[in-house]
Design a protein around this nucleic acid. Structure first.
Lengths: 205, 205
DNA sequence: TTCTAATCTGATACTCAGTGTCAGTCGCGA
DNA sequence: TCGCGACTGACACTGAGTATCAGATTAGAA
């Protein structure tokens, strides 16, 4: 799919990256993202500053690289869907794949989301990634109907809305310390588009 | 409302800011955002680098400060709406106020949007601003119903979706060089939530 | 096993964004 | 005219991110 490290070099690189990120993550949680410098990180990890910077282009990526595959996860899931479903259902299920991919260690994800939430720079970078995913997702959503005309406003809006839901739901979920059911949260969020829009009836969960 | 410069000091500051931004904007369009440094800008504007930096905290703000009032414009418009309309209509009309506020000089806005689009750093910062507006907008949207319970997922999703529409529509509009009708574009975009979601029927404009 | 080429590493130097300080200047009201 | 507050430019500093280079390491073929 996305990260298939073939060759010993790739494996090694992958492992080192993970270890560096692990060490760095502790520092970030301890001291705060902005307070920690690359020099701190490299010393803590026992490598030179140059080397650390070679593994992560930016400080934000040290935290956010775990989200990189999400775009592919969503597009793949969208393909796997039975195409005769409506757009919202397909997107909802694709999002469920995404959260399933992300929730491997509940506590870790909750911590990461907390760190992101209280660090504007991380929020910004995450939204950049999200924006990068969008075009491909839009293409897959439209693939069934062969109308690939340039101005697919509707599909773009739906995908953008769905991606917003992803973060809103994850935020809500991490606020509950990972207690709430992500499937139900997704349903509740997507209800924003099916519920009559007069009085917001905020699904009685 | 938001920017009401009272006192000579404020007026002066406001004017200087506008002039510096004007000079800088030309440079950005000419050479590209990332290629221009604060030193370039200050020399072009005939002030010291220190002074330039005092007017704009970051390079992004030199371009994006014009969007600052948009949050207030939207919340105010939301209040002015007849509250017995449904959420989507209120949001659509609030967004129309926002675009009306932004479109003073068509050519200038088109240029600015072009610059933003091809500069990831500007996109990111703009999305940050957008995220800052959201809580207040959600509060205003919910004000009618007194249910201000903490987890207003539905309202959050709707506002987030509406804000996404704002940029999608502006992008579409600037791609047409400001030719297309913004009101119709807004309608077409909001149709994503009312049109049956099976086959995307991308409003035949 | 040995050789070679590609890669990884640490060191160093560099540009630029952004922060902070300080002394001098200017505008404005008393 | 004086004095206060704000504005300015100069300077120094930290930290992110880029680029380069010589030496160590390792994969993989001979």
């Amino acid at each position: 799919m996305s990260t298939a490290p073939v060759g010993t070099r790739e494996i090694s690189r992958h492992a080192v990256r993970a270890e560096l990120a692990r060490v760095a993550f502790n520092r970030f949680c301890l001291t705060g993202f902005n307070q920690v410098t690359f020099t701190d990180l490299s010393e803590a990890a026992g490598v030179s500053r140059s080397t650390f910077l070679r593994y992560f282009g930016t400080k934000e990526d040290v935290v956010l690289f775990v989200f990189d595959p999400v775009g592919d996860v969503i597009t793949d899931a969208l393909d796997a869907e039975r195409a005769n479903q409506d757009d919202w259902s397909r997107l909802r299920n694709a999002l469920e794949s995404a959260v399933r991919f992300l929730v491997r260690d509940v506590q870790e994800l909750v911590t990461i989301l907390g760190l992101i939430e209280q660090t504007p720079a991380l929020c910004a970078r995450l939204r950049e990634k999200q924006a990068e995913w969008r075009p491909e997702i839009v293409a897959r959503l439209q693939k069934t109907t062969s109308t690939t005309d340039g101005s697919s406003v509707i599909a773009n809006v739906r995908v953008a809305a769905a991606l917003e839901i992803l973060w809103i739901v994850l935020g809500q979920w991490s606020a509950s310390d990972g207690q709430e059911d992500l499937g139900k949260l997704l349903d509740a969020a997507f209800a924003a588009f099916s519920t009559p829009a007069r009085q917001q009836t905020d699904a009685p969960l």
